[in-house]
Design a protein around this nucleic acid. Structure first.
Lengths: 136, 136
DNA sequence: TATTGTTATACTCTATAACTATA
DNA sequence: TATAGTTATAGAGTATAACAATA
């Protein structure tokens, strides 16, 4: 089939993101996490007592959409909240949360490594800087 | 905020795709199209009398999800169907569809050009081959 | 038997508006 | 006034199962 789309970097960007995203989502589902769950756990792990709003801003997840996400993690016993002041709550990993994060980190790291190796060597080191120029 | 995610190409890939996708979606909305609409119009334009199933396979859109998409395009007077045999239909652009495709093409091409120029020159030519290694 | 078009359905992600309480 | 957390809701994308008709 004649395809005028694949010549566009933006189109290929979407297809590549969708393909790799689906693959990672499958692997994370095996340990009971969504990609957004794993991202949040990683970020809380690196920033104990961060607030929901701050995490959302950093991950480009809206405040309103953080609510059900954090509720699931809390119900699963992976995170807990501690009041900072009257309106803010600091988030932290429980012990179970730290264990799950360790699993997630290993899943993500091996996935990312495989992904990286799929790229021809001469292009590898260019991908991250090119992508960062697009979104950061 | 301490961020362990941005070092991962896969994560950056998702963020970059989301950012560029949102931007293109906004521009296409101005001419009454979604990204998937524009993709389908482009592909029909380049492959007259292609079937819905064939388009879906090529675009990674499932048969079942092509149905409402094509219905919208047909209701908008942009495409028409002609029976090929008893079970297949060939798709074609109407005149209005060709006009809309011309608009979409211009929108996409100027978007893609801007996107490309946002990438530092030394990384530009590496992006497409790197992405294609990931999804093709 | 495999494929086409279709219906129905459900889940996820994303976006917006509005509200309360607090800084 | 601005911010944090929340509720409710809607749109879009994606996925699966199933069916009838045809190749």
């Amino acid at each position: 089939m004649n395809d005028p789309l694949t010549a566009f970097p933006g189109y290929s960007l979407r297809r590549a993101a969708h393909a790799s995203s689906s693959e990672l989502a499958n692997r994370l589902a095996a340990i009971g996490l969504r990609q957004s769950d794993a991202s949040v756990l990683m970020l809380i792990g690196a920033n104990p007592s961060a607030t929901a709003s701050a995490l959302g801003r950093h991950l480009a997840i809206q405040r309103a959409n953080m609510v059900p996400l954090l509720k699931r993690l809390e119900d699963a016993g992976l995170i807990e909240r501690a009041p900072i002041d009257g309106k803010s709550q600091g988030l932290a990993l429980t012990e179970a949360g730290q264990d799950r994060l360790a699993q997630a980190r290993q899943t993500i790291e091996s996935f990312e490594e495989e992904l990286f190796l799929r790229i021809p060597a001469e292009h590898r080191e260019h991908l991250l800087p090119a992508l960062e120029a697009i979104w950061r």
